[in-house]
Nucleic acid binder design. Sequence first.
RNA 1: GCCCGGGUGGCGGAAUGGCAGACGCAACGGACUUAAAAUCCGUUGUCCCUUAUACGGACGUGGGGGUUCGAGUCCCCCCCCGGGUACCA
Length: 853
Amino acid sequence: MNERDYKFKEIEKKWQTHWEENKTFKTPDFSDKQKYYVLDMFPYPSGAGLHVGHPEGYTATDIVCRYKRMRGCNVLHPMGWDAFGLPAEQYAVETGTHPSITTKKNTEEFKRQIKALGFSYDWDREISTTDKEYYKWTQWIFVQLYKKGLAYLDEVPVNWCPALGTVLANEEVIDGKSERGGHDVIRKPMKQWMFKITEYAEKLLAGLDELDWSEGIKEMQRNWIGKSTGANLFFQVAGFNERIEVYTTRPDTLFGATYMVISPEHKLVHKITTKDHKSEVDAYIEHAAKMSELERTSLNQEKTGAFTGSYAINPVNNEKIPIWIADYVLISYGTGAIMAVPAHDTRDFEFAQKFSLPIKCIIAPEEKEAEVKKISVEEILNGKACWDGNGKMIHSSNERGLNINGLEVNDSKARTIQWLEEMGIGKRATNYKLRDWLFSRQRYWGEPFPIVHMDDGIIKLLDENELPVLLPNVDNFKPSGGGESPLANAEDWLKYVDPTTGKKGRRETNTMPQWAGSCWYYLRYIDPLNADKAWDSKKEKYWMPVDLYIGGAEHAVLHLLYARFWHKVLFDLGLVSTSEPFKKLINQGMILGLSYKDARGVLVPSDKVESRDGNFYSKDTGEELVEFPAKMSKSLKNVVNPDDIIAQYGADSMRLYEMFMGPLEAVKPWNTAGVEGVYRFLKKSWRMITGSEISNISMNRKQLAVLHQTIKKVTEDIETFGFNTAISQMMIFINEFGKEDEIPKEAAECFVKLLSPFAPHAAEEMWELLGHKETLAYEKWPEYNEEYLKEDEVEVLIQILGKPKTKIMISPEASEIEMKKIALANSVIMEDLKGKPVRKVICVKGRLVNIVV
RNA sequence: GCCCGGGUGGCGGAAUGGCAGACGCAACGGACUUAAAAUCCGUUGUCCCUUAUACGGACGUGGGGGUUCGAGUCCCCCCCCGGGUACCA
């Protein structure tokens, strides 16, 4: 073979065409092979095109897929488009271009870019959430949830964003501003569709335990669900025939409750407010209602409130304690009322200090713990400081059989709950932070609801044969203004006549949020063309659950929680066979761009930077700059477009670099110069195959060892997603074999196979050059032989007191006694040890000897 | 504040409790070349000793302490950076 250039452009085009024409990666619905379902979080096809973060996850999944195929698995690896969403709609508002046109264009561009990377997707299974054949079934799933009683209409204070003309979900509001655009958000009551995700709180929490996800992500979901346990108990209102129920996680602190706070929205506020406090309370309620989301959540959390004039009776000691209203008690959590224990709750403590309410310490702090936290025990005991840590109860007994003095916090909790239950004034209770899911949006570009509001006031759920409810064509994409979506302007579409009864109604004008389509897309991939059903249950049984799911950490909570919720409902309905959808989840880390700043920390756009001798200077001022990683952004001009990298180095180098940068889950900076390294590696690999004599000579000991080490390392690293170190090992292989003039064919073929999941185009071409006619996509993955990894002699380090002194070559099988003998007889060691008594010798077989003197 | 990650050469990163810095980038020196590109070879943690790139020594994985024959790795405390969350009783 003659040496030829590594012409990646030709090679990549050739094989992408080959795979496409031969449908190399078409996945059969069923097979005797072990199934393996690998899912990428499908992208929203934005106008900006692909950025280097997308291919990171896609490359990782593609490597696993190609590897699994070579290990004999039937692999499902699909791709699609999460194509409903706000940007296309906003573009429509600005330009009048229909979102479907924008979406089509963007999708085609995304697809071109993704295909250019040579991923082994089964494109026959491509889906888009905006296709009516797809969203028909999204609507159908809504029908199933509705029928199960999990969907309801409610008048709720929602996050209304006047600038966007729409309601936002809690998670779309960041620091009181809209996530998109940063506009002000206020609270406004509106009729909204809600999902009772709270009914599934416990199942969603418990299900996490069986999942192979990173602990961090699971913890984030647990925190979001926010389970707590404690007690619900009643406080009698003095002078009224009313009781106020409170929820507390600290029933043990009842003796320290010196006042009560109810939320300004609490239903008893008006009833129990006395005449002389009415004006003050009314003013406070108005103040609280007017507050924007920003003010409520802002860091300036100075406590405010008003006294109602009424008192409650503390059930453990019959003390009269004042009832206040304050916005730090939320109506939406627990019972909207609390017992305040200022001595042992920091919020209550702040409030009590501000309004000079009594503070009664009932826990003697654990002294060591107080010392660590630098809080004076004396101040705590005198009510001058707050203690929310551990300790022993004091001043906590009554004449009716409750005495928890001397008990630790946990024991006293249990004892108090028991007492409350015996006395019939309270009981054990569990609460969740998780709220019901606000599921409607006042937008055009989303799935319409399969719902009609009949003129007689009845809410009609459409029959399956009336689906899909198609999105009507409109010209005006602006929200109607009153809070309704642009669909309210589609007059013909709005009118509905019941096909059987002839009764009239108006269609629901809300549309579903973007989360809807992504809640079940992994199920549709299994049976994407099914016109009669959302999916075939036999196929579902074969493919589910998803074995590996890779995507960005920004979806750690919401998408993954919503999808799990739908899946669990579908499971309870018998529509899917697994209780969880995603068995293993990995979040790839964000890829940052390289940025530059001057001595004052001012950021300099990358196109204003020049590099000399490894240092960086401003083109404008000549000042020396410091390189550092920062989030890619248009303004810093540090966005890397995969197209440019592919043009310069090829898709295979792009894929290799994405993986070589560092661990998949780590945040890491992109450095285009680094692509050079993997590109050189590919060129060396290419030269080894094309520029050397490939023959049937046998390998020497060293070559066998390197080859089998490489097989072992690459195999194990793919299994554990350590792609960066797998590539390092292949580089070591090339550094060893690349310098030979004659390459053993076995080694060359093994190497090409190992390389193929990472750099599939180059590998296919090399495979062909080695004389094979068929694609190597389904070739058998090489196996290593433990025999060849064994070495005759290993280097063993001899240390004295942990300091390396010398090295000896001995058999790895040498016993500890032999090692000790050889080590002590070594001349360097004898020299060093002169006279000193040897106290102990530690021998680690095949590794080291440590002599303690 | 709380909960998760993380801190290792000039840079990205590697290291079952056992020689820290694999592999790569950058830099420097050299070979090839009319020259450049490409390619190949070599050097590259800091400091000390030194005629020296020898020999040898000390220090070194954010800081301090501990366990151990031995710690980047295990334990305790602290600092810094990134992400999530926020009055959830």
